[in-house]
């Protein structure tokens, strides 16, 4: 399952810690939500980066107190038809101003990467190996965006106003 960041396949520097397994010293680690919340007061003292896997049926508001020191939030797509985490991503970016890595995990197709990117994700664990080399083309497929989202692109509604007065419609 390739990890894509900034358009390139990269190595995952984070280690996944399952359940009650010890957190490896000095290594970047991703913890399950319950474990993270239980141990947050100790985890904050660690030097190595910490990430958390946040389930898609839990309010991201609960994460707000920790967001200034968490390095990564992994949101989950249990299948590619379940779009709950798109809202979680936008809230993390736009409401809680999370600036760390926002990683899309679970079932993800290249056909969703542009939506994911627009919702604020910047790291993608792609389900299919073939989708990784196709990633850049997939997120560049559109040049027109009708609505503002977490990616800061101007929506057409405002883009139309910004351009020079045009000819009357034909």
């Amino acid at each position: 399952m390739p990890l894509v960041k900034a358009g390139r396949i990269v190595e995952d520097r984070f280690v996944r810690v399952v359940d009650d397994a010890p957190v490896p010293d000095g290594a970047a680690a991703i913890l399950p939500a319950a474990r993270f919340l239980a141990d947050a007061h100790e985890l904050v003292l660690r030097q190595a980066p910490i990430g958390v896997v946040w389930p898609n049926d839990r309010k991201v508001a609960e994460l707000a107190p920790y967001l200034d020191w968490i390095a990564l939030v992994a949101l989950v797509f249990p299948n590619f038809r379940d779009g709950c985490a798109y809202s979680q991503a936008r809230l993390l970016r736009e409401r809680y101003h999370f600036r760390g890595e926002l990683r899309a995990t679970g079932q993800i197709l290249r056909d969703q990467c542009l939506f994911l990117q627009r919702a604020g994700f910047d790291a993608f664990e792609l389900t299919k190996a073939a989708d990784a080399p196709a990633f850049v083309a997939a997120v560049q497929r559109y040049s027109v965006f009708y609505q503002p989202a977490a990616d800061g692109r101007a929506s057409t509604l405002t883009a139309r106003l910004a351009r020079v007065p045009q000819h009357s419609p034909s």
Partner: peptide
């Protein structure tokens, strides 16, 4: 306005 806003909306397509 609604049609445009809700067309290929990244958050509400799934």
């Amino acid at each position: 306005l609604l049609r445009q806003h809700l067309t290929l909306h990244p958050e509400f397509s799934f």
